[in-house]
Amino acid sequence: MSLWMQRTALFLLTLAAPHLVPNDYWIGVLTRICLYTTLALGLNVVVGFAGLLDLGYVAFYGIGSYIYAFLASPHFALHLSFWVALPLTVAIAAVSGILLGAPTLRLRGDYLAIVTLGFGEIVYLLLINGDRPVNITNGVNGILGIDPPRLGSLTFSRNHEYYYLFLAFLLLALLISTRLAHSRIGWAWQAIREDEVAARVMGINTTKAKLQAFAVGASFAGIGGGLLASWQRSVFPDNFLFYESINILAMVILGGVGNLAGVVVGATLLVALPEIFRGFHRYRMLAYGLMLIVLMIFRPRGLFEGNRVGRREPETSTLEEETLSLVEPGPPVGQ
């Protein structure tokens, strides 16, 4: 089957998916898959493309959700349309990405991880305590009554409507990620990930490139946050616990860091598996954890070969092969 046919088949499958699952609950699971894949694609830009280990990604997700909630709920009596509020949310999330990224520019690896982890906790604490002295976040009670998205005469309310909305944004995130991976800035990120000093010597502005990675990652989280708020119709600080950062990071790692197809599969599995394991009742998380361990033993670089964004010298590979390496494992990495 040609790549084009594979893609078309896959796309038709995602369109038909809500009609193929047994009930509305599963349509909700599919919607969550779209949401988490979008988030994971954003984290993948930071961790996968640029090699910056960010353990506080949930902060941007939380900021996105709350900004959307502020802009489209009775809380501040602002009722902006979804199509105005979401772009604003994304812009603010991107700025927050730059603001939180800037102090970490000199840090690498473990140290960056520790600081970003701290950021995640700070944002969570701000959300919880943001009701005093001036009530901004409404503390632990969260923000309720968030407006649903509207499109023409349709007001989104049912899961399958949200599913298609989320799918559209997921495809947008996927498109942007693919373009970025093959762009000039994608090359710069990859060089920074491999060797920051050498990247600088090549004339890459590493400060700018790293901030761009944080900004793009945070904007994807902003999309995810806005979508969550508009779907859940309410947001609470507990939606943005440290656990979520790790969950999203696991999706990126499971599939293969930096590999877009891997990220999609990783996010799909990590949302779907706990649901599939529901039959195990209280052993559910045990089965899930066991599966993760087994996977990492047998595929330590992820389900799909990680850390390659699939570029070959043009004369030795056709364009089709080049894009194919996005969905197939890259060449083995010999040491």
């Binding site: 090359w187 990859q190 060089a191 491999e194 060797d195 000093v197 050498a198 010597v201 090549m202 850390n307 390659r308 570029r311 070959r312 010298e313 990495v333």
Partner: peptide
């Protein structure tokens, strides 16, 4: 300081 996980060609293009 070559880019270890990039091909020779990619290193040169970089």
């Amino acid at each position: 300081r070559i880019f270890a996980r990039m091909t020779v060609w990619e290193n040169l293009v970089m």
